[in-house]
Deep mutational scan, measured.
Amino acid sequence: DETGKELVLVLYDYQEKSPREVTIKKGDILTLLNSTNKDWWKIEVNDRQGFVPAAYLKKLD
């Protein structure tokens, strides 16, 4: 059920640097789980959840 889920576009590649982070690729469109922290957003990638720098993402309307 995708209702109410926010999507984000990945602006730059990011390689995870800790187990709490996930790797993302430029151009991916992913589900945003939590954006309350202005610097690190929690997203879902391939059934994995983790954090990436918010500056690497853009919210889609």
Rank of each mutant, 00 (worst) to 15 (best):
L33H: 05
N46P: 06
N46L: 15
P53E: 02
L30T: 05
K25V: 10
P53N: 02
V45P: 00
D47S: 11
Y14Q: 01
L7W: 14
Q49G: 05
A55S: 13
L11V: 07
Q49P: 05
V45L: 09
V8W: 06
E16S: 15
L57G: 01
Q15L: 12
V10Y: 01
Y14N: 00
S35N: 07
D28I: 05
K42S: 07
T23L: 02
V10D: 00
L57T: 02
D28P: 01
D47T: 08
D28F: 06
D1F: 14
G4H: 14
L33A: 03
V8H: 01
T23Q: 04
D28E: 13
A55W: 12
V52C: 05
P53M: 03
V45S: 08
F51T: 03
E2Y: 11
Y12W: 12
T3Y: 12
E21I: 02
D28T: 11
G4E: 15
I29G: 00
L33M: 07
S18I: 04
D61F: 13
G50F: 07
E21C: 04
P19M: 08
G50I: 07
L9T: 05
P19N: 12
Y12V: 11
E21K: 04
R20N: 15
W41P: 00
I43C: 04
L33D: 01
Y56S: 09
K59L: 11
A55I: 15
D61P: 12
D28L: 12
K26A: 11
S35P: 07
L30S: 03
S18A: 11
E16A: 15
Q49N: 08
Y14W: 09
G27A: 03
P53S: 02
I43G: 00
K59P: 09
W40N: 02
R48G: 05
W41M: 02
T31G: 07
N46C: 09
E2N: 14
K5E: 08
Y12R: 15
Y56I: 13
I43Y: 01
V8Q: 00
S35D: 14
T23S: 14
L33P: 00
S18Q: 09
G4I: 14
K25M: 09
T36N: 12
V22E: 02
L11F: 02
G27E: 02
D61C: 11
A55Q: 12
E2F: 13
Y12F: 14
K42F: 15
K58R: 12
K17I: 07
I24H: 01
W41C: 02
E16P: 09
L9I: 12
L60W: 07
T36Y: 10
I43N: 00
K25R: 13
